[in-house]
Simulated assay, not measured.
Amino acid sequence: MPVPRLPSSLWPKILLAAIIGVLSGFFARKVGMPLPWMLGPMIGCGAAALAGAPVHGPVWLRPVVIPVIGVMLGSGFHPDLADSLAEWSGTLLLLPLFLIAATSVSYGFYRYVGGYSPVDAFFSAAPGGLNEMIALGTEAGGNETRIALAHALRVFIVISAIALIFSLLLHARAARGPATWVGFTDLSPRDALILAACAIVGVVGGKRLRLPAAQLFGPGLLSAIAHISGVVAMPPPTILVIASQITIGSILGCRFAGVNPRTMGRDMLLGLGATILLLGVTVFFAALLGPLTGTPLAQGVLAFSPGGLTEMSLLALAMGRDVAYVATMHMVRIVLVVFGMPLAFRLLGKPPKAPPDT
């Protein structure tokens, strides 16, 4: 991928974000934080951005690293997956009810506690589809900055909270040891070719099929098919996965660049409150899975948590949970949100556009 012609003033900011991201990743790894290579850069760059440091995420690298993560997540699927599908039916049936409850609770909070306009409250409340909800909300006359901040906070807080809870209460730590490392030489030329094809063809095919999050869904789907069929058994090289996680974490943290806690403090507090409510709904529905399907609470929380698809799937991998189960539930969640929210918006009747000064 060619390096884009960015303004020269951005490169020092990107370099600073990269340095903070790498150092934060090493520190998070040293202290045993779950998913250290993503959470460390996310927290480090986020704190730097809120403190006013001149950081800028390498957003132009996202189309390169997301397919790598997609292929890696697909490697979590296995040939005996069919035996597990029946066990997942209860979660899949409960998922739409969870989304309705989560969206309703979040909407009510933003609308009646926060005093947001109907448009801002509606598109801020969606438990997923960050880019899509920002675009649709702005088109409907909503406050782009407010909606973007709500979703950035949701993803940031959910990932951090889930990782912290697992670390403190369940004593989960980052995987260590050489057994977890896959080097370039561990892959045969055939393996490397198949994984590369999954990434490239998956992106192209996903875009042509207009899949949500095509850069992740396409490669992830092809990789899952390849691993389920037994065509390939290896994941991508670990160094590529680590570099991808550092990039994603840095981009997530740098989303808060330019956010002034003084002027946007109220919106940030509302985002925190709404996310806490979402997590409460998540735990409630995850607890229902126990008696209904026998799914452990921890795994149910990971499956329902309204964080990013990429991030929550990676967190499941770091926690030693069923990646295929968690990734599948988040893929279904994103599809339901991306296609369901615009439909619900039309069916409920478009609220009046928000005034320009809100």
Results as ranks from 00 to 15, higher is better:
82 A>W: 14
62 R>T: 01
14 I>N: 04
316 A>M: 02
95 L>T: 05
288 L>K: 03
261 P>A: 01
272 L>D: 05
344 A>P: 10
262 R>N: 12
272 L>Y: 01
351 P>E: 09
91 T>K: 12
98 F>S: 09
224 A>C: 06
208 R>Q: 11
96 P>N: 06
225 I>Q: 10
31 V>N: 13
186 D>C: 02
45 C>G: 04
122 F>Y: 15
210 R>Q: 13
356 P>H: 05
261 P>Q: 03
342 P>Q: 11
187 L>V: 05
288 L>D: 06
269 L>W: 14
250 S>C: 08
181 W>M: 14
240 L>Y: 12
127 P>R: 03
55 V>M: 08
106 S>D: 07
153 L>A: 11
145 T>C: 07
350 K>W: 15
128 G>K: 04
341 M>K: 04
186 D>Y: 00
231 V>W: 15
314 L>R: 00
31 V>C: 12
342 P>E: 12
282 T>G: 09
256 F>W: 03
292 L>P: 08
243 A>L: 11
206 G>A: 01
268 M>Y: 09
145 T>D: 15
116 Y>S: 05
111 R>K: 09
299 Q>I: 04
230 G>C: 05
330 H>G: 01
129 G>C: 04
283 V>K: 00
196 A>S: 13
288 L>Q: 08
96 P>G: 07
308 G>H: 03
330 H>M: 02
353 K>M: 14
161 A>Y: 00
246 I>G: 07
103 T>M: 14
346 R>H: 13
347 L>K: 10
7 P>W: 05
309 L>V: 03
12 P>M: 06
172 A>R: 15
171 H>Q: 15
203 V>C: 01
333 R>V: 03
205 G>D: 06
187 L>C: 09
331 M>H: 11
4 P>C: 04
175 A>K: 14
243 A>Q: 01
161 A>D: 04
108 G>M: 08
141 G>P: 06
346 R>P: 10
86 A>Y: 10
98 F>D: 13
351 P>T: 07
334 I>A: 09
225 I>R: 08
70 G>L: 05
30 K>G: 15
222 L>E: 05
154 R>H: 03
149 L>Q: 09
345 F>E: 12
234 M>A: 15
250 S>Y: 03
336 L>V: 12
328 T>H: 08
330 H>E: 06
67 P>H: 02
192 A>V: 03
44 G>M: 02
56 H>I: 00
308 G>W: 09
166 F>I: 00
82 A>H: 11
41 P>S: 00
293 T>S: 15
78 H>Y: 15
